[in-house]
Design a protein around this nucleic acid. Sequence first.
DNA 1: TTGTAAATGTTATATTATTACATAGTGTTA
DNA 2: TAACACTATGTAATAATATAACATTTACAA
Lengths: 132, 132
Amino acid sequence: MEKQHNLSKNQKIIFDLIDKSPEPLKAYSILFNVQKKGINAPLQVYRALDKLVEIGKIHKIESRNAFIACQNSSCQISKATAFSICESCEKVSEISNTKLSKYLSNFADESGMKYTKYNLEFFGLCKKCKSK
Amino acid sequence: MEKQHNLSKNQKIIFDLIDKSPEPLKAYSILFNVQKKGINAPLQVYRALDKLVEIGKIHKIESRNAFIACQNSSCQISKATAFSICESCEKVSEISNTKLSKYLSNFADESGMKYTKYNLEFFGLCKKCKSK
DNA sequence: TTGTAAATGTTATATTATTACATAGTGTTA
DNA sequence: TAACACTATGTAATAATATAACATTTACAA
Ligand SMILES: [Zn+2]
Ligand SMILES: [Zn+2]
Ligand SMILES: [Zn+2]
Ligand SMILES: [Zn+2]
């Protein structure tokens, strides 16, 4: 059974915005968009983002400093994430590939380090951009 | 044959600093450290960093906004990078594992997107921190 | 109902990165 | 050599991203 997270007011406003967006959103663009809803300060946005990331409802695209809603309901609380990023149009998709996630979750090298989390970002040209 | 890149004065100063550092360095920490060598402005640092990343001499650790020297001479110009990051002591190492890099370089999913580059960051506790 | 954790509100500030513009060096070729 | 293109440098200003510190309020379980 998944733990149920009842989002708070600010968290819900911000999650809904990200969830509806076809593209990753940046923190200050989120701030701009929610000011009409009474969220006025960067910290209010960042706190909601932190929480949403923590509970796995959204992910941060590190190379872009931007946030997208989790497109993979079975995503294990942001512990194992993979994305594809088009370097031309900046379209980002979450990759959910069982083989890939198994391979990476079980990955171990000679360092003796046990990995509990990973984030993978693939880059290239999406179908549309490739055919231009 | 690898293309030879003769580093410019600023590039060399900044590469040497990063290369000698046991830990990833942040841009403004680099700036602070090279001011005695006549590099005074953020842009001078960022320009050198951009170039060094481009030619594969250093890599950016995206989740940390920090830079490390390439520890893998055969690294294909920053097109395929993997790192291990200790979430306790923040030690970062570049992973060079042929199987892993082959697996990821050949990865393809149903999206029809051809990936030309990837960056992978593993997180966990290093040996030292685990045994504490 | 009282204690505790989570969330909010607000101001200020820290950190990371880029724009714009002027100048200087490096190497190639006419 | 002169002309050219390209890369690198210097400097100032500013944009974009993120956190610290502090006061207050809300949710909710013991
Ligand atoms: Zn997900
Ligand atoms: Zn595209
Ligand atoms: Zn490398
Ligand atoms: Zn450690």
